[in-house]
Design a protein around this nucleic acid. Structure first.
Length: 240
DNA sequence: TGTATTTGACCCGC
DNA sequence: GCGGGTCAAATACA
């Protein structure tokens, strides 16, 4: 458990290395103060996420846990995990279709039910979103089951120095791949709390960490400043 | 007109 | 019976 926490914190800190890009842009006078804001938000949120990963009592919520209730109407034994976020984000890389909303007794807020809306793909993944705090606003998304559909992002190999590159199929305003990391054989979703801020400011920065052949890294396409370019933050705590 | 959302009813486990 | 999850008709919207 602590291993996962450390890795998540490290991952978030690596994410904060977007500061390097900001530094370069500032040195070259390439961007305006307005354009800087997404970077600042990214850096700020990355460190906040890192700290929360270490200290937050909610960190246990990121651990995959079995659903205690056996409803789901014939669904298989689903592995679930939860992600807390200050925004009720829906753009987590998949298209979700809302199919229900329920008032929960134990909470003053409604719980919303979504299922994967992948076209022509019989995906049975589901998602529940519920507001768990008012101030500051905090939402908890519970993901149930695995996606049978193809994620809207693809992984391609890069010939250079063994790096692997994430290529988004969608660009601005399209959903962002959720940050799925597999650590110790546990599926863990790492919420990118920064993406919403950035997306809301019409800045196309999509960041995610993936696990490919046990090598983890950040890939950050920095549109519109350097369209088509990806910045890699090699991250591999195992190979230190 | 097709698609997504809303919402009350129904189903199921405890 | 209660509470949570799902269904499906009605409604909204592009």
């Amino acid at each position: 458990m602590s291993s996962y926490i450390d890795q998540k914190a490290v991952a978030a800190l690596f994410h904060g290395q977007v500061a390097n890009s900001l530094k370069t842009l500032l040195e070259n006078h390439e961007i305006s103060p307005v354009a800087i804001e997404p970077f600042i938000n990214t850096i700020h949120d990355s460190f906040s996420l890192a700290l929360s990963s270490i200290y937050s009592p909610n960190m246990a919520s990121h651990v995959p846990r079995r659903s205690s209730k056996k409803t789901n109407y014939g669904a298989e034994d689903l592995e679930t995990y939860t992600v807390d976020s200050p925004t009720p984000r829906a753009d987590d890389g998949f298209t979700w279709r809302k199919y229900g909303q329920k008032k929960i007794k134990a909470s003053p807020h409604h719980r919303c039910y979504y299922r994967c809306n992948a076209k022509h793909q019989n995906c049975r993944a589901k998602k529940q979103v519920q507001k768990i705090e008012d101030s500051p606003p905090m939402y908890r998304a519970t993901y149930l089951g695995k996606h049978d559909c193809k994620a809207p992002a693809s992984v391609v190999n890069d010939d250079t120095d063994g790096s692997k590159m994430i290529k988004l199929d969608q660009v601005v305003s399209e959903p962002v791949m959720p940050q799925l990391a597999t650590i110790d054989h546990q599926a863990i979703a790492m919420e990118d709390q920064t993406t919403d801020h950035i997306m809301n400011q019409d800045c196309d920065i999509n960041d995610f960490v993936v696990d490919v052949d046990e090598d983890q890294f950040w890939a950050s396409p920095y549109h519109p400043f350097s369209p088509g370019n990806f910045v890699f933050f090699d991250y591999n705590p195992f190979h230190g």
